[in-house]
Structure formats: structure tokens, C-alpha cells
């Protein structure tokens, strides 16, 4: 099976005095569903940042989607990100844009034709049950609805990898379940690799998953 993420002796830190991730060795196979857990401040989000290139590795090797992340150029980084779907706890939707345009963002960036993009966006908004709200702006929606918009945006361009940073951290139980279902659907139906950073793994997961835990800078797989 292809490895979509490969980490060898990966070390991450924001400054020289404090190492967040220390010589982590792990790999994630294409099409798998992965949870990364750990206590607050353990380095879960830091590790995720390195996966979408917001933080450069200090040492070691990190390959994401076949792209070497060490000293990556902005052109290569843009190319990689055009094949990733990222979901954040605080949604990161563009407030000035309506829902439809927010979901369309990855398609605009990838240069899809307008009519193709519009069909894809309508399909996704129907999928996340927000097709009747496409003209609304993010701040007119509830937290759960905003996260569904973020999910639709993450899926818009059929990414090879979805990276989700505590996607249900701000949501109630019902909305959280909707998001888990969407992530599971992306993994099972579209065969997209999903990496989720979270405090708690939901009990009723319907897909097999890998679980990595971060403790004291070490990343290890929980079996």
C-alpha cells in the first residue's frame, strides 16, 4: 500500500530551547483513517501543521503526498496544498464570502471552470445538507453548520488527504456526529486518507482506524 505520509526522525520545535516533537518515526498508508491524540500542549496541532507545511521540520525527514517537506519551496507547497483538504476547529471560513463561494475556494485555486465548480459545490452542499443556505454568509450560520461548510470545502477538489485539527472541538454532540459521519464517508466512499487530531476518539466509529498518541514529544502507535 502507498504511504501518503512518511516521517523519519522528525523533530519539530518553535525555538531551539523547546522541542515539541522529538525524532518521530511513523507512516500513514493511503486510504487509511488516522487519529492523533494527546494531552493539551503535547504537540498534536504542531505535528499537523508540519503536514500542511505551516511549520518546517527542524531535522529528520517528512514526506507528504510524495512531496519532501524539508525546505519546501512556496511553489511546491502551493501544489501540495491544492491536493489537501484542511479542516480547523475554528472553521477558517472567509467571512466576506457566502457559503457557495467558500466551498468553491479550492476549485477557484485549482482553476476549475465556473460551471463545473458550481455543479460540484451544489453537490457538496446537498451532501452536507446546506444547499438551501448557499447564499448565506458564515456568521449567519451556527457553529455546526459552519463546520459542515468547512467539510464541504475540504472535499471540493477530491483531495488525497484530509487533515482535521480538532474538527468537533467547538461542536455539540449532534453536530459532532454529523462531522464524523462526513469524515467516515470521505474515507470509505472516496478512499481519501483522513488524519484527525483530537482529544477523544468517538466510540461509535464505523471504519477501521489507526491511532497515534503523542506523549513527551514522542509519537507512538496505539494498538
Amino acid at each position: 500500500m502507498d504511504k501518503v505520509i512518511l516521517s523519519q526522525d522528525l523533530t519539530l520545535s518553535y525555538n531551539e530551547d523547546e522541542i515539541i516533537i522529538n525524532k518521530a518515526n511513523f507512516s500513514i498508508n493511503s486510504g487509511s483513517f488516522v487519529f492523533i491524540t494527546g494531552a493539551s500542549g503535547s504537540g498534536k496541532s504542531t505535528l499537523l501543521k508540519s503536514l500542511y507545511g505551516a511549520l518546517n521540520p527542524n531535522s529528520g525527514k517528512l514526506i507528504v503526498g510524495g512531496v519532501e517537506m524539508n525546505g519546501i519551496t512556496s511553489k511546491k507547497l502551493n501544489f501540495l496544498r491544492q491536493h489537501l483538504g484542511i479542516v480547523f476547529q475554528d472553521y477558517k471560513l472567509i467571512k466576506e464570502w457566502n457559503i457557495e463561494k467558500n466551498v468553491m475556494l479550492p476549485l477557484i485555486i485549482s482553476g476549475y471552470a465556473k460551471d463545473v465548480s458550481e455543479i460540484q459545490v451544489q453537490k457538496l452542499l446537498t451532501h452536507v445538507k446546506l444547499n438551501h443556505q448557499s447564499g448565506k454568509f458564515p456568521l449567519e450560520l451556527s457553529g455546526g453548520e459552519q463546520q459542515r461548510v468547512a467539510m464541504a470545502r475540504a472535499l471540493a477538489h477530491n483531495p488525497i488527504l484530509i487533515l482535521a485539527d480538532e474538527p468537533t472541538g467547538n461542536l455539540d454532540d449532534y453536530s459532532s456526529q454529523v462531522i464524523w459521519n462526513l469524515l467516515e464517508g470521505a474515507n470509505t466512499q472516496l478512499k481519501t486518507t483522513v488524519v484527525v487530531v483530537t482529544h477523544h476518539i468517538p466510540e461509535n466509529m464505523n471504519v477501521p482506524y489507526q491511532h497515534f498518541r503523542i506523549e513527551y514529544g514522542s509519537v507512538y502507535e496505539v494498538t
Binding site: Y52, A54, S74, K75, L77, N78, F79, L80, R81, Q82, H83, L84, I86, K92, L93, I94, K95, E96, L105, P106, I108, I109, S110, R153
Partner: peptide, 16 residues
Amino acid sequence: TERMAIMALFGAPVWL
């Protein structure tokens, strides 16, 4: 800044 940062997350080049 926020809009540009979000666009960068999805791989938008600087000109876009």
C-alpha cells in the same frame, strides 16, 4: 490578512 492566510492554506499563489 485572514482571507489571504485562508487562501494560502488551500495553495493559492500570491497573485491570486
